[in-house]
Design a protein around this nucleic acid. Structure first.
Lengths: 346, 346
DNA sequence: CTGAAAGCGCTAACAG
DNA sequence: CTGTTAGCGCTTTCAG
């Protein structure tokens, strides 16, 4: 007879806990129900102040540190945000990640890092690994282009923010600016300064390619007969690549009188190479960068560059995440624009 | 009577799941028990191949993505590693974080990012926030100095790896090298090259201070009457800080004939300032950096610097984490050393 | 090798 | 405002 009977008690499947202090321990120590302890910690305004005090005391006594794994599972809110950058080593997105992480941390969110590699398309495996953590949002640098990637993100129902770009078909939310417009602006600036034979040194990643495309189009529009030199370098772009790219350009039949570079680091390489050859910048060669990195104002000569404010992108992305979490209808697209920082090099 | 009786059925507390596909759905689709599905995915070698195949098929059909929050809670293994850097924006640790993240990812671990700020001591709040995620390891850049921080880490029973340093009192595991030894090596190198009036430009963070100390000690040991100039700059160190620091040094009564810089970026600033003043490097001024960043070989002149291989530190840290996880007794201390990369600037 | 039950530590939902 | 109960989705444990 399968009757529950004390003498034929079912064998206990033993499974002891981690041995760590749990919320139940805190509740016991404070002499309240576990749920009250939970509320005292997470929404103290809904609990009698005395109880809150007792619970806080108990937390200190016991050395309790909540288990967010359990909390996230129970509440379906992980307070985790996945951030996918092309490469951790690429300095361009550092301030962005930093400001995003900081803003998120202020509301209890944590950041989990993904790396997509410039070369490979955002791999489904990477995406699945991140989705498996059930982040409350996924932030990607650049638009998600791969069909499979879009599909998985959509299926996951996790809010997505694509950044540093302005995709025609956004997945969900966007915080960025037009990459081709950056290239156009650079071309117009250099041409407007009277340069006649412009060049572009561009890395072979998605966004750099878009800038290059905008640059070339703008030059052609202004003067369909214009010659544009172009050098492609590998990402991540370094000072050395910049030096070699300029050497390449200068070895051509008609050397350029202006160069737009895919990044400030490359521009610094161009500056270095130019100076080592005794060329005068900007007289003989105008040099323009992209990124306005923290050294751009202090190069010799100071670097004219295009500034896209990573800090702002990070902050705006965080804001959208907060709004979405609180069910306020978040905007879907934020164009943070960019600006030309005019210094002496161009 | 509180007897369980069908007609007075207890009211159902409704709590529907997330609506997502769960392992139970997969098991159902595959016609196996949930536990078998779990095993088929996590330890396929323990399951009949046919079953594995059926489960895999079901995963694809259903679009199942595991919920690692639940898995982590149940198994007490989060496959999460917390990495604490002083500042995300500081380029020195980029390769380290990248290689660490990559190595961990290859075994299914993910990285969650913490930032300690150079200025504040590792804050208990940051630590608690990370511990709350129950990471399988915590990796810190630099030794954990604060008493409270050490206490919490110890109490958490989470494996800790302190990196980029060689603390006398390590908390648990260490992968690094002696920071004072770096300073000594730099001093000995410059003095050995015949420099007589050396200077140091040092940021005011923990590790830079240790290098500076080693530098000063070594100089004194060699020649107790030696004069050493010293400039302190704010972290994070930039090219501009380097320029200004050199300007400062040159304005002093007896300008130095050699400078050791807290980072390559600062050294690049020194190079820039020297060149803009028409000084000859290394003839009039030897310049030495620290970090061997990717631009160091391509500056003009190429930068002599001290290389500590962040990539190796990351890899070694990952290895220790794996070993500890598999219960092999992991080593506790790995000294990865450093090397002087001799180039033209000094 | 496969399955059933129990429970990881927390919060949602409901009842008082 | 406080408490009770029932899960969240997975894996451990034990039994077959």
């Amino acid at each position: 007879m399968p009757e529950d009977n004390p003498t034929t008690a079912v064998k206990r499947r033993v499974r002891r806990g981690s041995g760590r202090v749990t919320l139940a321990d805190v509740a016991r120590a404070a002499g309240v129900a576990q749920m009250t302890a939970s509320r005292a910690l997470n929404s103290p305004e809904t609990v009698n102040p005395d109880m809150v005090e007792r619970v806080r005391q108990a937390v200190i006594e016991t050395g309790y540190v909540p288990n967010l794994l359990a909390g996230a599972l129970a509440s379906a809110r992980s307070l985790l945000v996945a951030v996918i950058v092309p490469s951790i080593a690429s300095t361009i997105y550092l301030e962005f990640v930093q400001s995003l992480r900081g803003a998120l941390a202020s509301k209890g969110y944590q950041v989990i890092l993904g790396e997509s590699d410039y070369e490979h398309q955002l791999e489904p495996a990477l995406l699945d690994a991140l989705i498996a953590r059930r982040p409350d949002a996924i932030v990607t640098v650049g638009a998600v282009r791969s069909k499979e990637g879009r599909k998985r993100l959509l299926a996951s129902a996790i809010p997505v923010i694509e950044t540093w770009d302005m995709p025609a078909q956004s997945l969900d939310m966007v915080v960025g600016f037009s990459q081709p417009a950056v290239g156009r602006a650079a071309a117009e600036y250099l041409l407007g300064e009277g340069r006649r034979h412009v060049a572009i040194i561009s890395a072979n990643d998605d966004r750099a390619a878009m800038r290059a495309q905008g640059f070339l189009e703008a030059v052609k529009e202004r003067d369909s007969a214009a010659r544009v030199e172009s050098v492609s370098i590998a990402a991540p772009s370094t000072l050395g690549e910049g030096r070699r790219a300029l050497a390449d350009l200068l070895s051509r039949a008609t050397p350029p009188d202006a160069v737009f570079c895919t990044s400030d680091m490359v521009a610094l390489g161009v500056l270095t190479e130019a100076k080592s050859r005794g060329m005068k910048v900007p007289q003989e060669l105008a040099v323009m960068g992209y990124g306005d990195m923290n050294f751009a104002a202090d190069t010799d000569p100071p670097l004219t560059t295009i500034r896209a404010d990573g800090k702002v992108i990070g902050l705006q992305a965080a804001r959208l995440i907060f709004e979405r979490a609180s069910k306020d209808v978040a905007e879907r697209v934020v164009d943070v624009g960019f600006s030309i920082v005019r210094r002496a090099s161009a």
